[in-house]
Amino acid sequence: MEVPRYWRLQKQRYALVGEICPHCQVKIFPPRDVCPECGGEAKQPFSFSGKGTVFSFTTMYDAPKGFEMNTPYTVALVKLEEGPVVTAQLTDLGEQPVEIGMPVEMVTRRIREDEEDKGIIVYGYKFRPVMAGTH
């Protein structure tokens, strides 16, 4: 992935930093230039808790470029507790079967790697089953 493109979205990717609309208070992720609820502009940064539930998911056996080394992997729509739904990989599933409605939590992981071992490593959010002992 091109460095500037990766770099400018680091905060969003590393830590699920989205936005809150100053007009209608809706929480937005990924960031948008116009609020999808009220049409207002100008947002303030908002850090999401990273807690959510699986809304839908799929285990992929055919990967696009940049992800070939990770198959099979599971991608999900995760409904965050603050409202928005995000697309993210699930990780650390172990033997646990995934189900719609399963509680998950955000972790920061390696997302992809291009140019073999020469390019930058792209880090970003993934979700895992909520860990026992997490409060």
Binding site: L9, T58, M60, A63, P64, Y73, V75, T87, A88
Partner: peptide
């Protein structure tokens, strides 16, 4: 994988494709 990658560029590259999603995976969900 170049083909799946190219098809993925029809999606939101920053927030879907970068997380490994393809049009096939979106249809699966």
């Amino acid at each position: 994988p170049v083909i799946e990658g190219a098809m993925s560029e029809t999606m939101d590259y920053d927030f879907e494709a970068t997380n490994g999603l393809t049009p096939t995976a979106a249809a699966a969900m």
